[in-house]
Design a protein around this nucleic acid. Structure first.
Length: 468
DNA sequence: AGCACA
């Protein structure tokens, strides 16, 4: 902070395109400023409400001579410059351009930056935010994050007009109390415009949503945040035991299929469900046991071990926060072994339960496959049987391609490959007789909200966000 | 009445 850094005399004006106007009336509008100045030239920028009293302003002309003409005119005029009858004092500014006339947050755009004050991130769900802002138009995307400023959300509308209507209505307002947890006393929204025009949402999760693409992959790890945060009795975070294990597969040189995982994890007890997914470029899987004890044994036994010799497909296990996976009964990435007796599924059982809870498993009970899959399996080159990757220390490293299951669920395998091989729309499941399960062709992961509604299958097919 | 923003 050196005084010599300001060598120019403060009140000695060298000409500038920028004029400094002071003694302006309270909250002088930009229009009033322009009215006063535009007879002298083209105004390219202004800044109003400057100074502690907000009664100063800057006006920048396109050309220096225009500014000079204005200053000269009023220097020799008998009538001072006036706005609303107040004399306005005009000088050259000591700067030569107006910078940051508008802060970026005041430049309208279709994306709002919302800071939610007075709440913890867990107090306001993305659903609540969506609800509040949807009142002004279709909300395309939402991304939430925690920064120094607090809990913030980027909310993408179709256009700046919609965004500004939301901003005008909600800025400084509070989210309705009934949408908030009881312990939240106040929750004020500070809204500005983001410079973004299109948010890049990679996953549906508890922190981000893309309502234009309901079938965007769900990030299962992120979705765990939907559950209660886990805090031990001592107040510290802990990893609670669970009947569901989260397996990260490292150095996955060979394909790890549902069948392989089933074989490996079945060594410790009944495996109920398996789901495989990609996360951060790696492969992870969720393996569900009936009880925590079995999961704990499997975790202790398998942690750090490799599915194949040579350090291939090394397992890292932790407890998932899930307790009951909602997975497609048959897909190349998931399996629900609890759906019913596999031996029944292999054969056509016309009256097999239409399953009161069939909507929870949109892939449904594949009673319609009939003879179809045997042919498709052949097309896929799947041998009827093959080497089973066993949990055997002597097991030779070998890609499990073509590996087929043991007798127990061999029959389950074929429909999986059938579904994977068949283009959407050609599934026999879409035949009229299958109308009770309308969404069976949806191969994408279910949006997380799909399974919380009754009749979720129908909701999945036509999310409410398409209703506009 | 006396020079902004972030």
């Amino acid at each position: 902070m050196s005084t010599s850094s300001q060598p120019q005399f403060r009140y000695t004006q060298t000409p500038s395109k920028v004029l400094h106007l002071r003694n302006l009336p309270w909250e002088c509008a930009e229009e009033e400023l322009v009215e006063l100045c535009k007879p002298f030239g083209k105004i390219v920028n202004t800044k109003c409400n400057v100074g502690a009293n907000r009664n100063q302003a800057f006006v920048e002309f396109a050309d220096l001579n225009q500014a000079i003409s204005m200053v000269s005119y009023y220097a020799s005029s008998s009538e001072p410059a006036q706005i609303r009858g107040k004399t306005v004092y005009i000088q050259y500014s000591n700067r030569h351009e107006i910078v940051n006339n508008k802060s970026p947050g005041d430049t309208p755009g279709n994306v709002l930056l919302v800071t939610i004050e007075g709440v913890e991130p867990n107090d306001v769900t993305i659903e609540t935010i969506h609800l509040v802002f949807s009142a002004f138009g279709f909300v395309h995307k939402i991304a939430t994050f925690e920064k120094a400023a607090g809990f913030q959300a980027l909310i993408q509308f179709t256009d700046a007009e919609t965004a500004s209507s939301a901003r005008n209505a909600l800025d400084g307002r509070s989210i309705p109390r009934y949408l908030l947890p009881d312990h939240v006393t106040s929750c004020y929204l500070r809204i500005s415009y983001s410079a973004h025009t299109d948010l890049n949402i990679k996953f549906q999760s508890h922190r981000s949503r893309d309502y234009t693409n309901p079938y965007l992959p769900v990030n299962p790890t992120a979705m765990e945040g939907l559950l209660q945060p886990v805090v031990g009795p001592d107040g510290k975070k802990q990893e609670p035991q669970s009947n569901v294990l989260l397996a990260s597969i490292e150095n996955m040189q060979y394909a790890v299929t549902v069948d392989v995982l089933h074989k490996v994890f079945s060594a410790f007890g009944t495996v109920q469900k398996i789901a495989i997914f990609e996360k951060n470029g790696g492969t992870q899987a969720l393996i569900q046991y009936p009880d925590v004890t079995t999961a704990a044994v499997a975790k202790e036994s398998l942690e750090g071990h490799c599915i194949y010799d040579g350090g291939y497909c090394k397992l890292h296990l932790s407890y998932s926060r899930h307790t009951d996976l909602n997975v497609k009964a048959y897909s190349d990435k998931s399996r629900d072994y609890t759906i019913s007796d596999p031996s029944l599924l292999a054969t056509q059982v016309p009256g097999l339960p239409a399953a009161p809870n069939a909507w929870q498993n949109p892939q449904g009970v594949p009673v319609h496959h009939g003879t179809d899959y045997s042919a498709s399996a052949a097309i896929q080159g799947q041998p009827p049987a093959g080497q089973v990757p066993a949990w055997d220390p002597n097991f030779q490293a070998r890609p499990p391609y073509g590996s087929v299951t043991g007798q127990t669920y061999q029959s389950l395998t074929a429909p999986t490959y059938v579904n994977a091989a068949r283009p959407a729309g050609s599934s026999p499941l879409s035949q009229p007789g299958a109308s009770s399960m309308p969404m069976q062709q949806q191969q994408q992961p279910q949006p997380p909200w799909a399974n919380v509604r009754q009749g979720g299958a129908a909701v999945l097919g036509r999310p409410p966000y398409y209703s506009r």
